[in-house]
Design a protein around this nucleic acid. Sequence first.
DNA 1: TATATCAGTATCCTAAAGTATACTGGTATA
DNA 2: TATACCAGTATACTTTAGGATACTGATATA
Lengths: 121, 121
Amino acid sequence: MDMTKKETKSFTPVECKTFIRPVRDVFDLIGGKWRLPIIIALSFKNHRFKELERQIEGITPRMLSKELKDLEINGLIHREVLNSRPVTVLYSLSDYGKSLDNVVVAMRDWGLIHRKRIINK
Amino acid sequence: MDMTKKETKSFTPVECKTFIRPVRDVFDLIGGKWRLPIIIALSFKNHRFKELERQIEGITPRMLSKELKDLEINGLIHREVLNSRPVTVLYSLSDYGKSLDNVVVAMRDWGLIHRKRIINK
DNA sequence: TATATCAGTATCCTAAAGTATACTGGTATA
DNA sequence: TATACCAGTATACTTTAGGATACTGATATA
């Protein structure tokens, strides 16, 4: 698919549905208010729980805890308990989580253009 | 940023927040259950209201109507009333909407990989 | 005349997402 | 001994997204 071309493409409704499905999957995985912020924060550096709480403005420990669990279950992040005193927990992106890079960067690039457009109105 | 590298990058918390903001903006614009499906359907071909309703499985006219309005307000799609009988309305992606191509394709590519991974488990 | 299609709208309701606030148990520091 | 930090959890609540269902008015067709 190349949405930059104007001419109408021949397509079947099934083909369209096939295109939608995987996009929906991604959305289910990284959707919600806090998951992308968490993923981005971890892409900058590994963070402890409290560090994430401070880095991601407005998040409550309840939501942070819940979303970290979900992301871990889906294999996007790792959780490591360090034996420091007091005990700290280090969160990091898994290789699989890192592979989301293209998606995140594409979103950011478009978002930056969008910001400029909004401001110039 | 390159999330494929392992070494820790120097960064400031502010830099991270600056990265998160535009991604959030995009999310607000194309988030929700139905917006991406609508955008994708329109990237395949221009659709009338009823065609979209049939193409996008499970959507109700209420949601379709609402999301089309929001997408039009944000300049991502165009709405054109045709003087046919009965009156039909044609929806199409604007150039701005088409510029989301990179984001959508990045999501789809990753989503396809993810599907394979899930199935092989 | 009855029925179907078009593009929606109106009203009500449910389920999910997210917020607020307080709390836990363990350890270290003043 | 009192206080603070760590990583969360518990409970209750509000808000929002989305679903169900029925309806509108205009036109065309059987």
